[in-house]
Structure formats: C-alpha cells, structure tokens
Design a protein around this nucleic acid. Structure first.
Lengths: 398, 398
DNA sequence: CTGAGTTAGTTCACAATCTAAATTAACTAA
DNA sequence: TTAGTTAATTTAGATTGTGAACTAACTCAG
C-alpha cells in the first residue's frame, strides 16, 4: 500500500505498471501499452524512453506487420538479456549457485560443498562463488542486478535477516547485508517456498494470477500465500505454515519437534517411514523406489501414497475454503511422487472443498528432479529479478 | 494496488493517507501529520485545507496546551458529525435500519417487517425507510454519504450484486444500483461477515491492525480475511468460507446442503440440535438456556459447548497457521455463547497452532445480544463510511 | 513588559509529472 | 501521387509536491 507521494512516486508507479504489463503480455506497441495502463500515449513514450535508456526495455522491429493501413507499431519488450541475476540455494552441506538473465533462464550454474557454517565464512564463499559465476558466464558485474539467496528456516525477508535457520545453526544473522558488502551487489534472502513462489509469479504458471498459493513439498511442507500480487507474510512471518497443522494429538514427531503435524505424514521422509513401518523388509527404500512399487501395483505402496495424498488434499481444501485462490502451484522434490500421490490429493481436495471453489481450480505440479537444487537456486535468483520488476529500479552498486 | 496515475491520483493517495492516520491516532497537529505521512508541511496544509472545506475535517482549538515554548499546535480531527451514513440489515422477514455519524455512532434506528421479497419492492421499502431515518434524525439528505446494505449470501460487493441470497430468493440482483436510483444516494452491499469486518477495521478492535481475521458466528459461520487493510475476496468471492470445511464425510447436514461441514457443528442451531439429541427432555431449549445450564454445571451442556468450542478452535488454528493474523475478532449472535464455549475454543486454538503464532494473538469476542440486528446494521453503515475513508471522496448524489 | 528563542503553519517560486491537442512519421491503397 | 489511417512525439497547460523564506503565536528571562 503506497501511502506517500511526491510526483516522482507517480513515475515509479507508472514504470512498474508498464513493466508488469510487458512481462505478462509480451512485446506490444506503445499505443497498446497506453490502452492497457490507462496512461496517455505521451506518458508511455516518456516512460519507455527512460526504461530503454536504462536498458530495461528494447524496441523490437519485428516486422510481423499490422498491415492495417497505417504506420506499423514499434513493439516494445523487456530486455531480458541486458541484465543478470545470481541465485543461491544454501543447504546444510551444499551451496548451489546459478546466474540467470532477467527471464530466469539459467546461463551458468556451479555447485560447491559448504563445509563451514560460520556466517562471515559463508558470506565470503558466496562472494567468491558469485565472482566465479559471472566470470564463467562472461558477464560484467555492472550488468548484475543483485543476488538472491534462498534457505530454509524463519527469514525476515524485509530486513534480510536469517532469524532462525536450524540447518546452518543461524540465529538473527544479517546475511543479506554481509553478502552485499562482500559482493558489492544488492542482496535479498527468503525461504524456499517464497523463492519458489516468486519465480512462479514472475514467469511461471502464476504469471497471470493476482492471488494464488504456492506449495513446496520437500523435506518440509509449506505454502506461500500471494494476495494481490504480494506475498502475505503475516504478523511474525509465520503465514503459510499449514504443514504444521496438527492432525493428531500424539502423532508422529515432526521436524519442528511437535507431534502430529501434517508435515509428519505427507513429506518424503514421512512417507518412507510410514511405508517401512508396515514393510520393514524394504529397508533402504528410496522415494523413486516407492513410486515404482506403487506403479507396479504394490498395494502397500499405493495405500501409503494414497492416504498421504488424501490427507494433504484435505488440508489444502481448508486453504482453498479460506482463500479461494486463482490457482495452486506445487513444487519441490515432492513433485516426483507423481500421480500415485497427487491424484488422490486432487480428488480429496475437489471432493472436500466448498461448492465450486475447487472444481475449476488449476492444480499445477511443477516437474522437479530428486535432489536437484537448481530450481531452488533459480527461485532465489527471482528474488532479485522480482525486485527489479516490482520497483522498476535497478540498484546498481549496493 | 493502484496502477495508473495522473497528478490528481497523488492527491487522492495523500488525502486517504491523512484520513487514515487521523482515524487511527485521533486529533493531531498538521506538523505531526507531516511527520507521520512523510509529506511536507506545505502539502499537509494544502490537503487539510481541502478536506476542511469539504467538512471531512475540523480544527479543534482544544487548548490542551503544548506549553513547549512555541506557537501552540492547532489540532485537526475528522469531523465525525458533519456527515452521516445509513446502514441496513436485510434478513428474511425483517429490515433493520440505522442512521449513524461517521464514527458509526447510531443516531436513529428503525425496524420494519419485510413482507415481500420482490427486489423492486424491497428497494422501494428501503428507500422509504431511508427517508424515515433521516427525517427522524433531522439530517439533511445532502449530508448523507451513502447507504450500506448487509445481507447473507454470496455477494459481489464490487459491482453491488446479490449473486445468490437464498433467504430472499435472490439471484443476480443488482440491488445496490436499484437502491441508488430510488434514494439518489450511493449504495454498497456486502455480506454480514464483511460488513462486520469493515466496522471493526474502521473503529473497532482492528483499528490498528493491517491484517486480521473477523469471524462471525450466527446462523452461519464465516470469516473475513483482511490482508494489508483490504478484504481478500478470492477468485469467486468465496474466501473466508472456512465454516464449510468438511470435518466428517457423512456428518450432519449443513445449511449449504452438504454434509459434515464445520458449521453444522458449531453454530447455535447446531449446538441446540446436538444437545437435544442427548437430552430430548429439554425440547424447546434456547441458547441462553443452554449457556445457563452449562454455567450451572450441567455436564451435558458443558460437554456440548466444550466439544464445539474445541472443534472451532482446531479449525481456527488452521487459519492462524495459514495467515498468521495480527488479531482475530469474533462477532455475531454466537457471542452470547460466552466463556463456556469460547474458553475451550481459545485453549484448543492456542494448543494446536504452530509455535508462537497464537500465544500472543489477541482473540476478541465482541458483545452481542441475541436477536439484536443493530450491530449488523451498524456494520452495513460502515460499508459507506469505509468508502469515504478509503477513497477520501464523498460521492454526493449517486 | 519587551525581546530572544521556539514551535506551528503558510506562502511562493520551482520542479516533476501527467494530459490533450497538434504535429510528425510511416504505411496502404486507390 | 495523394488521401486516408494508424503510431508515436512534441508542445503547451494543469496539477501536485517540495524547500526555503516568512508569518503567527507562544514562553520565558531579564
């Protein structure tokens, strides 16, 4: 909610408005932009001239003519390849980095071991990795718009603080600032789910949605709730934690330490555990194995996946009743659970949700390879890209 | 999300910004306003002069001096008593109307029977009631900012359409437009929960909250989800329908026709039904009777209220995990269920919600007399008042 | 009771931005 | 080649916000 305004605030609003439209409906002419934004052609000319000078936009003289009997329009598009972003996924023992252009296309990626967790050391390693990335991609640091960092835990994204990241043993670490200083680039951090949601919002399945839910199923289970184009974080940044809905008073122990959380019944480790309780002879089974068993009609495997899928569907139906989103996107390693899991989930959700709230609701599972951290890093890059599109400003030299 | 802007859009933003601050932090000086809004003193002078001319603000020469050694500030306040709003609660057989000032103080109220449901007749009766209200209150129609109408059902508040109001047998009725024409006043409609939420947001317990949940317990059970100061309506206007979370596949029949909805276990008719199933000898019991029995240690009554309260608490914990609101306000006739119901609800909620999300969460039950429709009508009035404060514009002569 | 010091609020010249209308540009087709 | 059409820019005018100077109103010390 913008509250204050001097005339330049108007410019910012109109810049972002034009960027948003271009991002959504591809290359269009200035005249069309004027119609879609409600601005006058004169203003559109002014704003686009500015953005072209900043290399955020380009003219595309694609002669795919409008032979309508008048001057041909000059198509304007976002210049996705004039600037670049770095995205990093921090996990317990690994540091995955990607360099992308503004369309989030991955140009380079590098994976390193993360051997130390001491914040300044990590920041230093990150800075070094950033340098490697742009050297290898032959990109000038001047053309980098910033660094996005994704990590699990409680994150204060607004202030760039890792409030509580148990896998790294971090509490109240101002990691964004530290990285900014070492890299001389603006930096943003957020948790996995929100990074994933940011990428889906910019160029993914939620590109045209104003309000949607992104659900990440991996080690944990969490949601990002996007309300009017903005992530709703809640009072303590705790919004979206439906994975910790308590479904049984003295149920299975969850990663959070409590008992009976939904997460303890629906994530991959949970599924393996539940299956092994019934079929201890399959000790050492992996998720792909389990899925394969189910596909081979192993009733035990089918039942485990079905039960968990239906349970997840039930709780998503509660989310749907509460939010009535335009769509739901699923991501994370859990995507590899496939239809044996997601079909029961869909059926349960559609059967339980109120009235028509779920009948037309798109439920999209984004493909994800097991143990592939690249999409997470790409999501992290979108934190930086998102900032550029949402503010219309490139913060060169943090 | 404001997307377009000519310079006058700036003015609008700054007007609403000033109005919002004044509504929240009472009478303050122009200088303080400048600090709080971030505007220059010059601009504040300009905007306030405009708003004073429109009688939305007044100077209050309350000499409660700032003897700080300089010129005394002139306090500015919203002129709550220069304009008035009408609020109407439409129920099956009753039409309750109130006339309030901008602080939602009820100056006059009139109740009438509603004998016909044909939309034009209803609109005519509404128009007549409006006239009675402002005549009796000795208010000039020129000083009325509009009419708010609250009714149960699926409402398209943006376009003023009663999409589906089963109690009145309405489908796709453009009631706001009809009332506007007959009364020559701008009109707004919304459902009960959203009207209640609007009132709480403006001057109630949620006055200082940006994101909160309002829950109305009456005949039905519904929530309004306020995200960043705005009601989140969802794709089909179905957001907040957590009362229809399905808790049992073949459970009790709900007013919506489905089975096993939460609403069928937690609203007043449901509680009476559940109690009578166990104690048929109490045929004809009312809610106050039931509460009294519980207070007199009748174990059956206690158990019914406790069970329902705990169940509601469980589902509110799901809402809390998903939204992490700043507070929750409860309203509606259900408020009379008292602590026998709300204490188990609170305990259940606090016990089940994730981590600290509910420990510090204010849970406020707004007092409500059984069968008192005045608060609903007052809430409806807030739909009109809300518009004035949110846009900073009074639409005289619809 | 007077004048220095202080705080509140207004005035005014200037800059940023938008719009409408006129103008230029580029194209089609008779 | 010229009239007609659509796209984009230029220009003049209007609105708004800001900073700096100014006026207003008050306190208090001497």
């Amino acid at each position: 909610m913008i509250v204050k305004g001097d005339p330049s605030a108007l410019r910012t609003m109109n810049r972002t408005s034009i960027l948003r439209i271009l991002r959504r409906v591809g290359p269009i002419s200035r005249t069309q932009l004027a119609e879609l934004t409600g601005l006058s052609p004169a203003s559109v000319s002014g704003v686009t001239a500015e953005l072209i000078a900043e290399k955020l936009l380009v003219e595309q003289s694609i002669g795919e003519a409008g032979s309508s009997g008048g001057r041909r329009p000059i198509f304007i598009n976002i210049d996705y390849s004039a600037h670049f972003a770095i995205g990093l996924k921090l996990s317990e023992h690994r540091l995955e980095g990607v360099l992308t252009d503004l369309s989030l296309k991955v140009l380079t990626h590098i994976t390193e071991d993360l051997t130390e967790h001491e914040p300044t050391r990590v920041a230093a390693q990150i800075a070094a990795l950033c340098k490697k990335l742009y050297k290898r991609a032959k990109v000038s640091p001047d053309d980098l718009i910033g660094v996005g960092i994704g990590l699990s835990g409680v994150i204060d994204a607004v202030n760039g603080i890792a409030v509580h990241a148990p896998l790294l043993g971090w509490k109240q670490i101002k990691i964004a600032e530290m990285v900014s200083q070492k890299t001389n680039l603006p930096s943003w951090i957020d948790n996995d789910v929100n990074s994933f949601a940011a990428a889906e919002r910019l160029f993914g399945h939620a590109k045209h949605a104003n309000s949607f839910i992104a659900i990440a199923i991996g080690r944990g289970l969490g949601a990002a709730i996007i309300c009017n184009g903005e992530i709703h974080r809640g009072r303590d940044g705790g919004a979206g934690e439906f994975g910790h809905n308590k479904i049984l008073l003295n149920g299975r122990t969850c990663s959070c330490g409590r008992q009976g959380c939904l997460e303890a019944y629906t994530t991959q480790p949970a599924l393996l555990g539940l299956f092994l309780e019934q079929f201890p002879e399959h000790q050492g089974i992996s998720i792909p194995d389990l899925v394969q068993l189910a596909n081979a009609q192993h009733q035990g495997a089918i039942s485990v996946l079905e039960t968990a899928g239906a349970l997840l569907g039930q709780h998503i139906s509660y989310l749907v009743n509460a939010f009535n989103p335009e769509l739901i996107v699923f991501g994370g390693e859990g995507a590899e659970l496939g239809d044996a899991f997601f079909e029961p989930m869909r059926q349960s959700l559609r059967g339980l949700a109120f009235d028509g709230l779920a009948t037309e609701l798109p439920l999209i599972v984004v493909p994800w390879a097991n143990d592939d951290f690249t999409p997470w890093a790409q999501g992290a890059a979108s934190l930086a890209v998102q900032h550029a599109f949402d503010t219309g400003v490139l913060l060169k030299n943090a």
